[in-house]
Amino acid sequence: MTWLLLAILAALPMPGTQFKQLPDSKGKAEIEHACYTCHSPDLLAQQRLTPKQWTATVEKMMRWGAELKESDKQVAIDYLSRHFGPENRFTPTATTPMK
């Protein structure tokens, strides 16, 4: 049983894991609701995509079940394009996995 619990813990963030905080602006709440089921904010914060690429990515994620209303799609694409465009620079957080 201990092995099982250790295994689960190892595959999840360690206690005290810090995630990147997404910047506050219009669309953040929709993004958090749609994306955080499957990804930590780190994955979003490191992207360097054009609006065309963000549109394709958001549409792919909606096909895969992301909870984003069609009426909120453009708000989400605008948010991602505004903050995580081709000029975006990302510094990963230093962390510690289990041995």
Binding site: H39, Q46, A94, T96
Partner: peptide
């Protein structure tokens, strides 16, 4: 974990 140095770079907190 408290004493282990933080040496890896977290590209995605979950999935890891």
């Amino acid at each position: 974990t408290a004493v282990m140095p933080k040496r890896l770079l977290q590209m995605n907190g979950y999935p890891l």
